[in-house]
């Protein structure tokens, strides 16, 4: 029985690297006492996968992991058992069962929703920058690759960018994510000429795509209804 858990990563836990999150969640599940499924073999471990790594120093309210249970446990109890033992700074927001018609979380990822709070830039200037990005048709940013620096086009991967309604210093972005194209908020900030130290980045959610529309990964738990 496939289970996905949507969890948050806040406070000091934002400094925990993806590799360390993986180990931490393995141990969280071991402590939880849930009937989780282990891999076979000489050194069995929990078959646990994650939707998408998150950079260090980035906060998130929409991280996802997947594992399997060998007995049914209600989603409320799964959530409660995990939260009873989860490491500080992490919190299971919701969880549910998903059917086998979905591929792995990782291969389903198509888009991420972000909010970025910006310090030290006059609001007018920020609003102009956001508008410039929105109105552009092509945006080139320098990307570091194995072979050195290379210019990449990111505009097509910016599905949406706007100032949030309630805070004029906060930019809301929907950016392409996953295997095909992956645009990070840092690349967009670079295009806006904003230094990383002036931005506080939060991932709000991760989405998959069906027939041109995006849905939060958590909605996989509902009966498909597209």
């Amino acid at each position: 029985m496939r289970v996905i858990v949507k969890y948050s990563k806040t406070n000091e836990a934002i400094y925990v690297s993806h590799l360390d999150v993986q180990r931490s969640m393995q141990r969280t599940l071991r402590r939880s006492g849930l009937p989780v499924k282990y891999t076979l073999g000489f050194h069995p471990h929990i078959a646990l996968t994650f939707a998408l790594p998150l950079s260090v120093a980035v906060e998130s309210f929409g991280e996802y992991m997947e594992f399997s249970l060998i007995d049914y446990v209600s989603p409320e109890i799964i959530k409660a058992k995990i939260n009873a033992v989860i490491a500080p700074g992490f919190y299971a927001e919701s969880c549910g069962y998903i059917s086998n018609e979905y591929h792995s979380l990782m291969s389903s990822v198509a888009m991420c929703e972000w909010v970025v709070k910006i310090k030290g830039i006059p609001q007018k200037e920020l609003a102009d920058e956001v508008k410039r990005i929105k109105d552009s048709t092509e945006l080139l940013v320098e990307k570091r690759t194995k072979k050195g620096f290379r210019d990449v086009e990111i505009r097509k991967g910016i599905y949406d960018i706007s100032l949030t309604a309630d805070a004029a210093d906060t930019v809301h972005m929907r950016l392409a994510a996953g295997g095909k194209e992956n645009i990070s908020p840092k690349m967009v900030l670079a295009a806006m000429g904003i230094e990383q130290k002036d931005a506080r980045i939060t991932r709000k959610d991760i989405y998959f795509e069906r027939e041109g529309k995006h849905y939060p990964l958590l909605s996989m738990c509902n009966k498909p209804n597209f």
Partner: peptide, 17 residues
């Protein structure tokens, strides 16, 4: 700001289980 820059920042944060 420091924690955004240093190697392995969770060496310096505490907050473990």
């Amino acid at each position: 700001i420091i924690l955004q820059t240093v190697e392995k920042p969770s060496r310096y944060t505490g907050g473990e289980l």
